[in-house]
Design a protein around this nucleic acid. Structure first.
Lengths: 193, 193
DNA sequence: ATTTAAGTCGAACGAACGACCGAATTGTGA
DNA sequence: TCACAATTCGGTCGTTCGTTCGACTTAAAT
């Protein structure tokens, strides 16, 4: 018998199955039984490793948030000038939406749950804050840029930029066949003129 | 006995009750029984007037979309220059989010359902298109403005603007206590400099 | 006054859900 | 080897859900 030491734990299998289900059907259409089936695991295992459904979903959110922030942070290191950094961030974001929107879709799906669940709401509020922070610290802290946009604080602008990215991304998810739509992301660069 | 001829129909009572429930608890937490209770009506009436749950929810969406578009269209008539029009639109939008976000919350709540329901997805896709159209036709068709933003089409820019409004609004809903957040909406005007 | 259709209601159905339990299995340290 | 804890499993419980049904009431038309 071959022993694969990298074989995922039972609890990891469950977590990844939950992630898969939610990204492909939405949290509202995902039952514990669905997840157990995809994970190839007995239903009761879900309650054993994660206390209840909310506990499991929270771990899924934590996983998605971690992956999302890591990728954004990574792509903010490319490019020298603020314009360049913004360009590369938008370029990555656009590619992510077209090729692998699973993580973003999970996060987006949960934002509507966030309005009604204290815990999840707090997590997604912090995510928006963190993304805005990353943009502010990595892109907007440029002296020449600061002069041009002095009418507004860099905090306001970073929130506007992260909001624009999110809002356009939602439109893309809603209409993935409209190939011209993602180019609206590029128009964000207008702010830096 | 006083007869009020403006007494809402049974089906109207149901529709408004559904709207209320969804805007205050979210569609995923709203059952047919909840709606029947709020409407003061027998449960079976919901299936009599609207075929099933999806049919009722679709009417709620139609109602919300109608109200939303009408208000935006109305506030786009104020102001002369593009900058002024955008200012008044953002001013209205900000006030709406702070004072009466019920309609917007319903629409936002349904956007996550839209990813998994063909019919609802189509409706919200069209809503985004319509809002972008309104911005494009009422604000971006200005010759002087067109020169300044010639690098991008007015279509791209209108989609970016509507996306930014939506994205910032979501952040506001997620963190209603952060009073500085809505001012990020004002930063949208940067595009018009 | 009689008939017919529309509206309204309470009760019930089957299905699906999350959670829980006891037994069986596996892994671990003495 | 033995005992004990951790893990895994199938089965089931009570609840909630959307939907349906038949009976009753109201309103309109003949």
């Amino acid at each position: 018998m071959i022993i694969d030491t990298n074989e995922p734990t039972q609890s990891e299998k469950i977590l990844l199955a939950a992630f898969d289900c939610i990204s492909s059907r939405g949290y509202a259409n995902t039952s514990m039984r669905d997840i157990a089936d995809v994970a190839g695991v007995a239903l009761s295992q879900l309650n054993y490793h994660y206390k209840n459904k909310e506990g499991l979903f929270i771990e899924v959110i934590n996983l998605a948030i971690e992956k999302y922030l890591k990728e954004i942070e990574c792509h903010l290191n490319v490019g020298a000038s603020p314009q360049e950094k913004m360009f590369y961030l938008l370029f990555y974001f656009r590619g992510m939406l077209e090729k692998n929107p699973k993580t973003f879709r999970v996060l987006y799906d949960f934002t509507s749950l966030a309005l009604w669940s204290e815990i999840i709401g707090e997590k997604l509020k912090n995510l928006f804050n963190d993304v805005s922070d990353l943009i502010e610290k990595n892109i907007l802290q440029d002296d020449h840029l600061k002069k041009n946009i002095r009418r507004y604080s860099s905090r306001e602008i970073s929130r506007m930029l992260s909001g624009a990215m999110f809002g356009i991304a939602v439109q893309v998810l809603l209409d993935p066949m409209e190939k011209e739509l993602p180019s609206a992301l590029d128009a964000i660069e207008l702010v830096f003129d």
